[in-house]
């Protein structure tokens, strides 16, 4: 298949995979700026794993939409983190490490008890098989992204102030605890929605890689968020192309594309 034929095939036969992954990439990269700047990369890794466990949980229980199961479990995790991470008795990375392992264990145990067809869905998430994306998936992803981005745009100053200096923000009447919770809740919903479309590797990768590249490429805070969004939306195009060209799984191919995009900035900064 020639390059032109690959591009035509992607556009004509897999427009939803392309659109869904671009929206997911954009949303994850935007939120990733906070994930990286707040130094909570491991929180996002744990939430991604919890989101996959949520899909497995929904499949096992039955009658529960996988995205709903995923959102429920990640939201519960956010509530638990909000409480547990304040504790000084146990280091926060130990709490996150335990949560990660628990989510992984739940997923494996539930998959063992789930029927073959539903196991296939979880396995496709783990492989990052984006080509099965449906119009309904894209609609859910687009609406979720629009709502989350709107919240972050309207309350940009609150999120920024709290991420930099929560204590001072609180003295100015900005409810730091509330905004921290809203941030993690929007992150949980974004991760849960995206993970079903693009897989866990893509979600975690796009929470970290494009935002890091944007921080190296742009010098002003507003531009970093814009650049991250663009850097998040573009790699899926190259990733899908490479997946077709070399018969790679689409998720890992897209993450590899994002890394390629990051490299020039890293080299330039050195």
């Amino acid at each position: 298949m020639s390059n032109v034929e690959i591009i035509t095939t992607i556009i004509q036969q897999f427009p939803y995979a392309l659109a869904g992954s671009m929206i997911a990439g954009l949303l994850c990269a935007f939120l990733g700026v906070y994930v990286v700047s707040k130094r909570v990369v491991f929180v996002s890794a744990t939430l991604t794993e919890v989101a996959v466990a949520g899909v497995a949980f929904a499949n096992l229980v039955g009658g529960l939409h996988p995205t709903v199961g995923s959102v429920l479990l990640t939201s519960l995790a956010v509530l638990l983190f909000a409480r547990l991470l304040r504790s000084t008795a146990v280091p926060s990375d130990a709490i996150l490490g335990i949560s990660y392992i628990v989510a992984l264990t739940i997923r494996i145990l539930m998959m063992q008890k789930t029927s073959g067809a539903e196991v296939a869905e979880v396995e496709s998430i783990l492989k990052g098989d984006m080509l099965l994306v449906t119009p309904a998936h894209v609609t859910i992803m687009a609406v979720t992204a629009a709502i989350i981005l709107l919240i972050h745009l309207v309350f940009f100053r609150q999120f920024l102030f709290v991420s930099m200096d929560a204590e001072t923000a609180r003295t100015q009447g900005i409810r730091s605890g509330l905004w921290e919770f809203v941030f993690y809740l929007t992150l949980a919903v974004a991760v849960s929605t995206a993970v079903r479309i693009v897989g866990d590797l893509f979600v975690f990768g796009f929470l970290v890689i494009p935002s890091t590249a944007a921080m190296l490429a742009a010098k002003r805070v507003g531009r970093i968020f814009l650049t991250a969004a663009v850097f998040g939306a573009l790699p899926p195009i190259l990733g899908l192309f490479l997946a077709f060209k070399f018969d790679f799984p689409a998720g890992p191919a897209t993450v590899a594309s994002a890394v390629v995009l990051l490299l020039p900035w890293v080299v330039q900064k050195r």
């Binding site: 700026v33 100053r157 930099m164 200096d165 100015q172 010098k219 805070v221």
Partner: peptide, 19 residues
């Protein structure tokens, strides 16, 4: 303070007006 983002001095001072 968390200093990963490249806030300018003006950006930081303007935070005093956020409320």
């Amino acid at each position: 303070l968390e200093l990963v983002l490249p806030l300018t001095v003006r950006d930081v001072v303007m935070m005093g007006r956020y409320a």
